[in-house]
Design a protein around this nucleic acid. Structure first.
Lengths: 348, 348
DNA sequence: GTGAAAGCGCTAACAT
DNA sequence: ATGTTAGCGCTTTCAC
């Protein structure tokens, strides 16, 4: 045995310490080389990098985080990741964040406002550097309180909250696309339009309702009905069934206020034995898989959800690099399709 | 000024240190109280908890992780989180893991095997305690190599790899549901069935192909065609278009081997001007939103993806608590529907 | 039952 | 340009 190196446990991963020993230099020199400090000689750089390669050294991200005071981790609080819209946003955000060296910690709150608040606390204790948040209730006191205690920057995703002036935000201009839809229906002759809406505790639902109400104010011969509820198929089904049971007073066009609501609306329409668009015109919000293969293909209020995630990530990265808070609005569109037609002649 | 407490910076969060000072006890006592050590007097417990409450102390999860050698974090490597199936699995897994105190670090590899490998490295450096993995290529050398170097337990989600004997795994029994579908088609009279398949580098695609081939071997008068490719709509469209252009030799039934492939298949069928099921029978794999509202409603090979995520989480938690590695197979079913009918009479 | 002290793996002064 | 030292905030021996 001619080795003079102290036999360190080979099953255990090497740390800067082992690298320094092997290279015959100080710990700090290893750290300097690895973090790209300018003042290092070529000789030093080589000695260290050789030792790093020989030992298969990898920095401990956890220790770095503790020491540097930055975890390079971002929390993403969502109501329901299994909603394809949420998932598309997550994809956009994760990709952009990872490019900047951040990782995404995902927490799901099943659209429970109290869980939102708990999760913000968790993410604070985990020392995430920032937050992306699509809370279930923009005015929930506990959520707002936790957010105020949260030390890092926060970006609201398709949400707004006046009580959080520190937060950045990105949201779709839900009014634009839906206005186009309502106008389209009105021009086709519809005089009673119903919106089977989601939960008005979040921006998208409130904006959609606002579009219908505002439009109706400007056009006296238009009647509008808004049925708020959960973003669920069950609500879509029940609300639509009730609307369609309205006899002569029933709407001639129905707008599904979200992809989760749509299946319920379709089920109710089918159960009522109505034909689209002959008996009833239909519009849905948010493009999801297969809508274009329904018969007839559904007219849709469209937007780019990957964008939403990417912009959210960009806004957070801005704040993390010290820049000011900002709010961004992204466009929505409307794709008319065969699910909209003039209303049936009403028997007089 | 009668206070004798040293005025600590109030903008800064309190640590165990501050709690100990305020309570007039040692650091270690604070730690003991907070971690529920048995040997603590009631007096001590109260003094500490009072100070904790007064200062609004919250433990630093990062520091705990470093010291304890466990980050209470699990990495989840997916090909595409925006795929609703993946997202449903993620929901099941996140929920189960969070219940056990773990958080989920999500990384998306855009189905790029090299990114899979890179991500495993990242998650190792971040000291995640374990891994959930749905890799893009089960045999990719870099992925396997990184996985072998990964120190914690790993659960393959709907994937298998003989070279990773240490890994737990959960996957659907893709054969069962698809066998039922093929049998159903055969009984209806179909003698040429095509599978527009996904990428055979992953288990689901291989199992689906195997079902068709095995069935054909047992039934000499059945012709089967398998068109492997990416799990994409583009592949679905192109492959289906090619199949349908086959003239007299074209299949009378087509199976879409995944939810991503389905829209392409539907587009090609529509483009070919064929009517389902009169001209062509159709089956798809994996229930997704709206399939039941297509006309006709699509026959579907079904499974519970939330389960897949939950079981994956459970298997990982088992390993994390020292128990042995395990493999679980979950059931699939088949829901026949109006998209399947006897094949059209062939002109002789 | 409680306190003192060591150290998880790393970085950033501060020296030289 | 390199080495020495003091922590980041916490847990955990080890003494008493």
């Amino acid at each position: 045995m001619t080795t003079d190196e102290p036999r360190t446990d080979p099953t255990r991963r090497a740390g800067v310490r082992q690298v320094a020993e092997r290279a015959g230099v100080a710990l700090s020199s290893v750290s300097r080389v690895l973090s790209g400090h300018p003042d290092v000689s070529e000789l030093m750089r080589h000695r260290v990098l050789d030792a790093v390669a020989a030992l298969g050294y990898e920095p401990d991200h956890l220790a770095q985080s503790l020491r540097r005071g930055a975890s390079m981790t971002v929390g993403y609080v969502v109501g329901d990741i299994s909603n394809p819209l949420t998932a598309q946003i997550a994809l956009g955000a994760e990709t952009a964040l990872r490019r900047a060296g951040y990782s995404l910690l995902l927490v799901n709150s099943t659209s429970d406002p109290d869980l939102d608040a708990q999760h913000i606390r968790l993410l604070r204790q985990r020392r995430t550097d920032g937050l992306l948040l699509a809370m279930a209730d923009e005015r929930h006191a506990a959520t707002i309180a936790e957010l105020e205690r949260y030390p890092g920057p926060c970006v609201l995703v398709d949400r707004v909250c006046a009580k959080l002036p520190r937060a950045s935000g990105v949201h779709s201009d839900h009014r634009a696309g839906l206005s186009a839809a309502v106008e389209h229906l009105y021009r086709l002759g519809h005089r009673h339009i119903a919106l089977v809406n989601g939960d008005p505790r979040v921006l998208p639902a409130r904006e959609r309702a606002a579009v219908l109400r505002r439009f109706a104010r400007g056009v006296p011969d238009l009647e509008v009905t808004v049925r708020p509820g959960g973003f669920t198929a069950a609500h879509g089904r029940d609300a639509t069934a009730a609307l369609l049971a309205g006899g002569a007073g029933r709407p001639t066009a129905v707008i599904a206020g979200g992809n989760q609501i749509l299946p319920g609306v379709l089920a109710a329409v089918r159960a009522a034995g109505l034909t689209v668009p002959t008996d009833l015109s239909l519009v849905t919000c948010d493009q999801v898989a297969l809508v274009e293969f329904l018969r007839p293909p559904l007219a849709t209020v469209t937007r780019d959800l990957g964008d939403l995630g990417e912009v959210a990530a960009a806004l957070l990265l801005e704040r993390l690099s010290g820049r000011a808070r900002r709010r961004v609005t992204l466009p929505t569109g409307f794709r008319a399709d065969h699910s909209c037609a003039p209303p049936p002649k009403r028997p007089t």
